[in-house]
Amino acid sequence: MITWGNIRIEKAAKKGQEEVYSCVQCEHVLGPTTEDWKKYALVNKAPLSKAQPLHLATHSGRFALREFYCPNCGTMFEVQMLATEEPNVETFKLL
């Protein structure tokens, strides 16, 4: 069983089944591992001032914190600082 943080890779139990990503916390099945798991997660673009003291934050619209979390239980899977409009980065893909 492979996990990456709160994401689990579930191997196919029998022939004809798919290998899927699921949530470690609630076991919700996210979707087949043929796609990036981020496609199955909920996404929120939060301002850079989130999760830091305001006296240190610089306010700018160029970047955002991209939060990816479980659509069932809300567990945070990954937070990335990216330019506001750029495509997602596929953090890991096992071969």
Binding site: Q52, R62, Y69, V79, M81
Partner: peptide, 13 residues
């Protein structure tokens, strides 16, 4: 401006 010290697996930068 950017937050460069990234978090990991749900952690914040």
């Amino acid at each position: 401006e950017p937050r460069l010290a990234n978090g990991l697996a749900g952690g914040y930068p």
